[in-house]
Simulated scan of single mutants.
Amino acid sequence: MVADPVTELLTRIVSGLVMIAIALAAAVIGGTWFAVLVAAAATMMYYEWSRIVRGWGFHWMVAGFGYVLIPALALLWIRERGAHKLEMLLWVFIVTWSTDIGAYFAGRTIGGPKLAPSISPNKTWAGLIGGMIAAGALGAAWILYFDLSHLWLYLAPLFAVGAQMGDLFESGLKRRAGIKDSGSILPGHGGVLDRLDGLVVVATLTVMVQLSGWL
């Protein structure tokens, strides 16, 4: 049975809004609530990773542990220890989410040449550029509103590329494993790993920049 595109899109939007609301609430509250959310997400990501790489060797299990632990620690550091704690955490969310949304709608609307057909046949160059534009515009608006370092204005579209490369990396893992989604816990989105593969990159890069002394 083929899913109705309108119903599929509505399911994706509603579940996406619910996830955003939960993430924003935990981020604003911070402390234990945010730490619990991050820990739960990391645990689910590692569970899905372990299912994908089952039988590939122990080193893949170790790599997966680092894959989920580093961005989890990065998110906690941004919220509790970094400069402009909440504002920068929300910037990370904005860049990641706007990349996903911009890429999705630009890819669906414009189409065109495929970005990496052997890895993810649905991703296009239009989607990549759409994600960069969305992340650059919304990320810039946030930075300007809170008068944060203008370096982030230039990094937002670059981090959008990183987010989409994270998406392609996870797509490559799934293609090798012969599966479509990392899980089915999130209606319209697949698994937790499917939804957070871009955040893994953006959060990690943000901490690297903050610790680099460039600001």
Results as ranks from 00 to 15, higher is better:
45 M>G: 15
178 G>W: 05
122 N>F: 02
140 A>F: 04
173 L>A: 03
9 L>K: 00
176 R>Y: 11
99 T>C: 14
183 G>W: 13
93 F>S: 08
161 V>I: 15
70 I>T: 14
67 Y>C: 02
6 V>Y: 09
212 S>E: 13
124 T>V: 08
28 V>A: 15
88 M>A: 09
177 A>E: 04
165 M>Q: 04
94 I>N: 06
83 A>G: 04
109 T>W: 14
24 L>A: 14
153 L>D: 13
33 W>H: 01
143 I>M: 10
7 T>Q: 15
23 A>H: 02
215 L>H: 06
111 G>K: 03
59 H>G: 03
194 D>W: 05
31 G>V: 00
166 G>L: 05
189 H>R: 11
144 L>M: 15
60 W>F: 15
188 G>N: 12
123 K>I: 04
89 L>T: 09
162 G>D: 12
8 E>F: 02
90 L>H: 05
137 A>H: 00
69 L>S: 15
55 G>H: 00
126 A>S: 15
51 R>Q: 15
33 W>R: 01
210 Q>V: 01
195 R>Y: 14
123 K>R: 13
81 R>K: 08
125 W>L: 14
144 L>C: 12
148 L>H: 05
109 T>Y: 12
83 A>L: 11
41 A>P: 00
180 K>N: 08
16 G>W: 11
63 A>F: 15
95 V>S: 10
113 P>A: 13
139 G>T: 11
56 W>A: 02
146 F>P: 04
197 D>F: 00
52 I>T: 05
39 A>W: 01
187 P>A: 14
44 M>T: 07
16 G>C: 14
76 L>G: 04
159 F>W: 15
38 V>P: 03
200 V>L: 13
173 L>H: 02
66 G>V: 07
36 V>H: 00
97 W>G: 09
150 H>L: 11
17 L>Y: 03
89 L>Y: 04
182 S>W: 03
148 L>G: 06
136 G>N: 08
208 M>G: 13
26 A>S: 14
104 Y>A: 08
16 G>R: 06
135 A>C: 07
59 H>Q: 12
115 L>V: 08
132 M>I: 09
110 I>H: 07
10 L>T: 04
86 L>T: 11
116 A>G: 11
135 A>T: 08
189 H>M: 07
204 T>M: 08
175 R>L: 05
40 A>N: 01
11 T>S: 13
202 V>T: 13
144 L>V: 11
74 A>T: 05
